[in-house]
């Protein structure tokens, strides 16, 4: 809804605003000129890249340090670790393929091995007591 005074209000404000721009004090005009020159200066644009270059350098330094420091959790001989694992897995796979009779034989063999180890240990104890 347009009012009667709207055009007059807009005219008065526009005139006042335009006059305030043309009547800007010389010091303010000088500051505006300096601001414009600063915005257009090529050194400002170059400066914009500096933080990015610094960031890239620090990332490279961190990456280098990461490779230099040995990891604590890595075993000393990784091949040995892998070898033991493979052996255990092979044995387990082999045992699952045996039938009942073969499993009984393996159990008997394990018992015989344990018994011989026990008797060896008892013999060693007797010798040490007598000695």
């Amino acid at each position: 809804m347009k009012h009667d005074n709207d055009a007059a209000i807009q005219e008065h404000t526009q005139r006042a605003l335009n006059r305030s721009v043309t009547d800007l004090p010389p010091a303010t005009q000088q500051r505006l000129h300096e601001a414009r020159q600063r915005a257009l200066s090529p050194s400002r644009k170059a400066w914009h890249w500096q933080p990015m270059v610094a960031m890239a350098c620090s990332l490279c330094a961190v990456a280098l340090l990461w490779w230099q420091i040995p990891s604590v959790s890595t075993p000393e001989d990784p091949t040995l670790f892998t070898h033991h694992n493979e052996e255990a897995i092979d044995a387990f796979t082999y045992l699952t393929t045996l039938d009942e009779t073969e499993q009984e034989i393996v159990a008997d063999l394990e018992f015989a091995l344990w018994l011989s180890l026990q008797s060896d240990a008892e013999l060693d104890d007797d010798v040490s007591k007598r000695g």
């Binding site: 721009v21 043309t22 800007l24 303010t28 505006l32 601001a35 414009r36 915005a39």
Partner: peptide
């Protein structure tokens, strides 16, 4: 362009 608009922008 900047010169043409700076005064109005400042106001």
């Amino acid at each position: 362009f900047l010169q043409s608009i700076e005064g109005r922008a400042l106001r």
